[in-house]
């Protein structure tokens, strides 16, 4: 009676959605965080523009993004991934920019005075300093995104949420609790795993 195999597959798909969305969102966040950081002097127009863009992506909830993207990209995980990625880019971008603002500018000055361009200085002077920090934020975000990915299916954006919506709508009480239990277990397992990874990343930094 329990469709454990299909739920396990859906759960795996949900985790993959969260991972892909985190990867895409964090990637966009890294690109936007350098112009958004106040200490790198990206320019009078570029810096505020990047900051406003991050703010907009951060303040609109994922579900609202998902509702709109489901119209544009059709029902399915694609819309959900893009919605979570958009919100992630905004949330991570702010944290990344703050991490960049807190780095020492010695290496930056070195690269610039050796004739490096702005991009090269970002890549070779700032990125190596902040990389462990960014990685640890991204992992934390992955935990949060797994939770979001498990409910974003409510609006038709893929993952285990769609199945959950269905069984709640049909009042299959036992299946509701079974799926909820699976989701909680998966979230806990990923939390533990990611916490250990994060401690290793932070340990490597120190």
């Amino acid at each position: 009676m329990y469709r454990l195999d299909s739920w396990a597959w859906l759960l795996l798909e949900t985790a993959n959605m969260a991972a892909l969305a985190t990867l895409m969102g964090a990637g966009a966040a890294v690109l936007l965080a350098f112009p958004a950081a106040r200490n790198l002097g990206a320019g009078r127009i570029l810096c505020p523009a990047a900051r406003r863009l991050l703010e907009a992506m951060r303040t609109v909830p994922e579900i609202v993004f998902a509702l709109i993207l489901v119209w544009a990209f059709g029902v399915g995980p694609l819309a959900g991934i893009l919605a979570i990625a958009l919100h992630t880019a905004g949330a991570c971008g702010k944290l990344f920019a703050e991490a960049i603002e807190n780095t020492g500018l010695g290496a930056w000055a070195g690269v610039r005075s050796a004739g490096g361009t702005w991009m090269q200085a970002c890549r070779f002077a700032i990125l190596p300093q902040v990389a462990p920090n960014l990685l640890s934020y991204a992992l934390l975000r992955f935990e949060i995104n797994l939770r979001s990915a498990s409910v974003i299916g409510f609006v038709g954006a893929g993952g285990i949420g769609e199945e959950l919506y269905k069984v709640i709508a049909f009042n299959y009480y036992e299946e509701i609790s079974a799926i909820l239990l699976l989701v909680i277990l998966a979230v806990c397992a990923i939390d533990l795993l990611s916490e250990r990874l994060r401690h290793r990343v932070i340990g490597a930094m120190a």
Binding site: S148, V151, F154, L164, Y165, L180, V187, C188
Partner: peptide, 9 residues
């Protein structure tokens, strides 16, 4: 561990 949206539903 249960999201608010699930409770709402």
């Amino acid at each position: 561990g249960i999201d608010q949206l699930i409770w709402a539903l």
